[in-house]
Write a protein that binds this DNA or RNA. Sequence first.
DNA 1: TGAAGTTGTCTAGTATCATAGACAACTTGG
DNA 2: CCAAGTTGTCTATGATACTAGACAACTTCA
Lengths: 242, 242
Amino acid sequence: MSMQDTASSGVALWRLVADGIERGIADGRFAAGDKLPGEVEIAETYRVNRHTVRRALAALAERGIVRAERGSGTYVEAQRLAYPLRSRTRFSEIVGADGREPHGRLIETSEDVATRELARELGLKAGAPLVRIEAIRLADRTPICVSTTWLSAELFPGAGEVFAATRSMTKLLEHYGVRDYRRGATRITAGIVDATDAARLDLPLGRPILVVDATDHDLDGKPLVTKHSRFAAERVEFLVES
Amino acid sequence: MSMQDTASSGVALWRLVADGIERGIADGRFAAGDKLPGEVEIAETYRVNRHTVRRALAALAERGIVRAERGSGTYVEAQRLAYPLRSRTRFSEIVGADGREPHGRLIETSEDVATRELARELGLKAGAPLVRIEAIRLADRTPICVSTTWLSAELFPGAGEVFAATRSMTKLLEHYGVRDYRRGATRITAGIVDATDAARLDLPLGRPILVVDATDHDLDGKPLVTKHSRFAAERVEFLVES
DNA sequence: TGAAGTTGTCTAGTATCATAGACAACTTGG
DNA sequence: CCAAGTTGTCTATGATACTAGACAACTTCA
């Protein structure tokens, strides 16, 4: 037969092989610099045709995760960003600690109106005016996540412009006199990247993302901003400390 | 053209549509019982053929997430288990709080030897004897996660048999005189389910999973067990509190 | 009752996915 | 240098995926 034995999952075989190899890299079975097994051997372990393996390796190579050398073998090159989820987490500090250069990039800002959900998170009334900020965060030149951030337009008038100028949520809050803040309850889910985020994160369609919803509070527990962030799962791992 | 405009991702179009709709359900754009837009309208928003939408809806229907009614429309039916990640988390309590019946099922246990990695987590020497326990946890009859658990075979002799009898990690530890324990540092990543876990979790191939690595300690901070768990992302959401 | 809107089913054509086999081009190690 | 092992390229074939159009079957509502 030509497709996988089980009912079709909507995921191509070569893609499953690629994911398997990538998982092997992520969990250390193959370290950076290591030589992968030969294409024939991989084909045997996954029970697919060698051409299917080649398609998988080509996809990984295009994403810069492996590198093929004719006559010699295929070699690994990659690593994930460790992202601690403490109550006081700053993106720039995490990326800096990894020896990489943090960047923020504004996609767009707009005026918005609080849904019931958003109003509850921010302690406002439904229909209250909000500022919505859509932004990307990068380590060196690699996009790590896209975030949609909402703030009260009354408490933070002109927040969009301030973020455009500072490109930092911490500096934005400082501008309004907020000296410190903490992350509150955080929801983590996984999903598949949609077309818009795929383009922003420079991810191929169909790749997994970590979805994080969190609300930041000031030291008195008053909600300040609420965020909906989508992380490229292949570039980051969250660390929850206790 | 027949495939999506961008370079092929290895994920079928119908699957992307299905994921999009499922995401809409998960984040509340469509509530349980709601009527989805018509097939023609969905086809237009995703810019695909109506047949492709039908394939997507058929897949969701087979998983029990939507239900089609001829002549009337397609309706939603589903919900995710909220899983708080506190330092003191018990699966049975979480599931019970959701009004569902928790179950554990043993897949297999085996003797194993500590890799350098496992030894470091458990505070043992590399090569130390371990007990490995492979188990599934369910809410009502829905598999939520598969876990691979390792314990020192010297500190917990016969742990495999004890777990087989009790089907609970908490009771297992009690059996060895451990009255209370806490979760230590926890790593969360996302990936794609492999064939083995897909069968165990009753998931179609290619679906996203949340991968959690954690080590439990006693109250003195001494490591007891270390776990590698794979959660069906579509059935659970993690809550990180601060 | 009838029109509009819905899901269900059929036929058909093109592109992609996966398989299979053969051989070229290159690297490594004896 | 040579043999073994590696990646690269070619041709060919069948199964799926996606698109397109048409119409049937059913529900809802005026």
